[in-house]
Simulated scan of single mutants.
Amino acid sequence: MATDKIVSIADLQAAASKILPSSTREFFNSGATDQVTVHENSAAYRKYRILPRVLKDVSNVNTTIPLFGRDIAFPLCVSPAGLQGMAHPDGELATSRACAKYGINMGVSSYANHSVEQITTAGNEVAPIHHVMQLYSMKDREKEKRIIRRAEAAGCKAIFLTADSPVLGVRYNEVRKTFQPPAGLAYPMMEKTSEQIQQQSHDDGFKSFNDDSHSWAREIPWLRSLTKMEIWIKGILTPEDVETAIEYGCDGVIISNHGGRQLDETPATLDVLPACAKVARGRIRIHIDGGIRSGNDIFKALALGAECCWVGRPMLWGLAVS
């Protein structure tokens, strides 16, 4: 498929899937175990229908929303997604530049192939842009502190604490083929060289740093003691956890199931959004990711209670065909 014929995200996925090596394609596109959740995330949007009102003046519609201290062009941001260097050599640098060009915010993954300093600089050279730093609970608290301090010094506005990953999701294709990032890609935020990465499996590498003893009582006060950045919780699927985030004074939550890559057979994020938004009652900001593939999808998510949508895979596919 020629890139000039790409008119939808489905076209983009198809074009990228033809270009990417099989191991990279499967890493980006696949989910955990039987991939029920990764498919239902998108399918959930097809259950809802839009009932338009007519003869309304839309000539001055304003799609901007305030987020992290500035207005963004419309309620869409790019999720933190690791290993973007597998899709394009510029990886996160190109993503940052694109987000700046179109006036939206970007999440930076702890598994980024470029440093947060390089990523924020790349975007700001195009236009003012705000970034957030995705973070895991780590066994090495000093390294975690360094990531936080580097992110804040680089201008990041928030920490997105990934809460749904006490262990790495079981992804059959990664196990069958012993997934390993290509040689030459490093994790500068994790302070790991390519050579160090190649010495472990992806799963063992995650186990070596991730702390499965994480908890609300341990993580949130500790983060508050270290940074003035906003603290958001990524990976919430229940009203009860929204309430807990409010109790701990978090600034926002992302309704997320990790793109179906963690625990399979969890519900689609859109299906749990209304209940989560209802319990929030305006006390905390509610964002969503997972399966968003069109403007109609964004409209449905906003109608059901989200303030903003975040996308990951479409950005990766875009990198691959650029």
Score class of each variant (00 low, 15 high):
residue 28 F to S: 00
residue 23 S to Q: 07
residue 255 I to H: 04
residue 283 R to Y: 15
residue 277 A to V: 04
residue 9 I to Q: 09
residue 134 Q to I: 15
residue 303 A to K: 09
residue 317 W to P: 13
residue 63 T to L: 15
residue 142 E to Q: 15
residue 177 K to H: 14
residue 265 E to M: 05
residue 260 G to D: 02
residue 10 A to L: 07
residue 297 D to R: 11
residue 3 T to H: 01
residue 115 S to A: 00
residue 44 A to I: 11
residue 199 Q to A: 12
residue 4 D to M: 02
residue 39 H to V: 06
residue 36 V to N: 05
residue 281 R to I: 04
residue 120 T to S: 15
residue 202 H to G: 06
residue 140 D to H: 06
residue 190 M to F: 03
residue 250 C to R: 05
residue 84 Q to E: 06
residue 151 A to N: 15
residue 245 A to S: 14
residue 104 I to F: 07
residue 225 S to D: 15
residue 187 Y to C: 09
residue 280 A to G: 14
residue 108 V to S: 13
residue 19 I to F: 00
residue 277 A to H: 12
residue 119 I to H: 01
residue 191 E to S: 09
residue 225 S to L: 03
residue 123 G to P: 05
residue 72 I to N: 09
residue 231 I to A: 15
residue 272 V to Q: 13
residue 280 A to L: 00
residue 120 T to G: 14
residue 268 A to K: 07
residue 33 T to Q: 01
residue 3 T to R: 02
residue 44 A to V: 05
residue 307 E to Y: 13
residue 250 C to N: 12
residue 244 T to I: 09
residue 43 A to L: 08
residue 261 R to E: 03
residue 143 K to E: 12
residue 219 E to S: 08
residue 146 R to T: 11
residue 253 V to F: 12
residue 179 F to G: 03
residue 266 T to I: 03
residue 99 C to N: 05
residue 120 T to L: 09
residue 33 T to M: 08
residue 249 G to H: 10
residue 67 L to W: 09
residue 117 E to R: 06
residue 275 A to C: 03
residue 119 I to E: 03
residue 154 A to M: 05
residue 113 N to Y: 06
residue 246 I to P: 12
residue 195 E to R: 13
residue 138 M to T: 00
residue 223 L to G: 15
residue 205 G to T: 04
residue 311 V to I: 14
residue 110 S to Y: 15
residue 252 G to H: 11
residue 20 L to S: 04
residue 312 G to N: 04
residue 274 P to K: 02
residue 28 F to Y: 10
residue 7 V to S: 00
residue 288 I to N: 04
residue 5 K to T: 02
residue 238 T to W: 08
residue 312 G to Y: 14
residue 219 E to W: 02
residue 117 E to Q: 15
residue 8 S to Q: 08
residue 83 L to D: 02
residue 163 A to M: 14
residue 251 D to W: 12
residue 22 S to F: 01
residue 1 M to I: 01
residue 79 S to C: 07
residue 64 T to I: 11
residue 42 S to A: 13
residue 322 S to N: 08
residue 23 S to P: 04
residue 49 R to W: 14
residue 7 V to A: 11
residue 98 A to C: 07
residue 90 D to M: 06
residue 276 C to N: 00
residue 180 Q to K: 12
residue 67 L to H: 13
residue 86 M to H: 07
residue 190 M to H: 10
residue 193 T to Y: 06
residue 74 F to C: 08
residue 7 V to W: 01
residue 267 P to L: 09
residue 169 G to H: 08
residue 63 T to K: 15
residue 321 V to P: 14
residue 193 T to C: 05
residue 277 A to W: 10
residue 226 L to E: 14
residue 23 S to R: 08
residue 262 Q to I: 11
residue 162 T to Y: 12
residue 84 Q to H: 12
residue 182 P to C: 01
